[in-house]
Design a protein around this nucleic acid. Structure first.
Lengths: 203, 203
DNA sequence: GCGCGCTTGACACTCGGTGACAGGTAGGGC
DNA sequence: GCCCTACCTGTCACCGAGTGTCAAGCGCGC
């Protein structure tokens, strides 16, 4: 999916195979539906064996959901990099924007993937699981920012959760509208709603 | 789990077997961990065959997560029954309270289950999936209440999402504190934070 | 007692996922 | 050029989740 020019030869070879696999997978899955495609089939379409598929992806779901890993890392990095004096609502809006932008960037491809995920229970579940991890990480980051020990930490968790809920809802509406709605505008509206709660003083 | 006196004999028999199965499952799973227990094992512990297990539960996860079904229905019913003039934040707080109460009711049992779910990725994923369904349902209910067509519906979805995020965070803290924290009090504090966003006018 | 329907167990099968082993290939030292 | 090593791959055997099918068991009305 993403090719770094400064990588060892072995890494680039690995990337190549991985791309071949996910490309084949995405085509088949989007076309026939998640459950109607076997891993054997995907591997065969990419010209390799099932065993090799599982050396590159931990599960059949992973081939679709994998990119969420770097998305989470990107969000955490963005939040960590935000100036300390910025209000939580602004910082979090930028955090979420990173991922929204990434989607809007490769709109055609991203839309297909998002629709596939939201329309497939098994994939949706994995997606939500990742998001739960993000929430923990963002909450920790927020607790740091606000200088409160992560002891109880109700407020940072809520704030992170609300921001990701906004993200989720935006994706849902974007996907349901088949790309007609503008994700950036949806995000702005969503954050306008939740901002007062995000900036509320920790109880 | 729940026995209704006014039910046909066949139904009660079914309930009995189902209870036997989930009891055996919960014991084994809590003791040895989700992945270390096979369905065969569970079925054997309840004195029946694997095939029978799958006639009562759609999946291994379901035996743990099943009760969430009625929990969701309970919440939707509560929200639907709330007086129309009540503000969204109050109505949603009561909605979430239904489930929090249910947990606090059978605290010992509920705590074990919640800890098992939150500590097992596969179960957590299913749990989140259910919650996503609740969100859709609660959002629809909210849209009705507010008298706005469910056309775009950003606000109701956000509100439902925030309320469930609160629910989630409360469960997380309750589980992490091993039951020491008071769920009711956590819920109140959470809703105090998010209330302004819930009651904000739809954009 | 007889047939009917529902529940169950047994068996076979598919598919996701893993461990173990064997071969192939690229690169480095000699 | 040759060998040794390291890595990648396919094959095979295997486990566990989940499903379809069939035949036996059992309660129940007639």
């Amino acid at each position: 999916m993403t090719t770094r020019p400064e990588a060892s030869l072995a890494q680039r070879k690995r990337q190549l195979v991985s791309d071949e696999l996910s490309q084949a997978a995405l085509n088949l899955l989007a076309q026939k539906g998640f459950d109607a495609v076997t891993v054997d089939e995907i591997a065969a379409a990419a010209g390799m064996s099932k065993r090799t598929f599982f050396r590159y992806f931990a599960s059949k779901e992973d081939v679709v959901v994998q990119f969420l890993g770097e998305m989470g890392a990107g969000m955490r990095a963005e939040l960590a990099g935000r100036p300390a004096e910025e209000s939580p609502s602004v910082a979090l809006r930028h955090t979420v924007w990173v991922s929204i932008d990434a989607c809007a960037g490769h709109a055609e491809q991203a839309l297909r993937v998002v629709q596939l995920i939201l329309g497939t229970p098994a994939l949706h579940a994995r997606f939500l699981e990742r998001q739960a991890q993000w929430r923990d990480e963002l909450a920790a980051e927020l607790a740091d920012r606000l200088g409160l020990g992560s002891a109880t930490g109700l407020h940072p968790r809520l704030a992170a959760g609300m921001a990701l809920t906004a993200f989720d809802v935006v994706l849902q509406l974007w996907s349901a509208s088949d790309g007609a709605e503008d994700p950036a505008e949806l995000t702005d509206r969503a954050f306008a709603t939740i901002a007062p709660a995000l900036d509320a003083l920790p109880a």
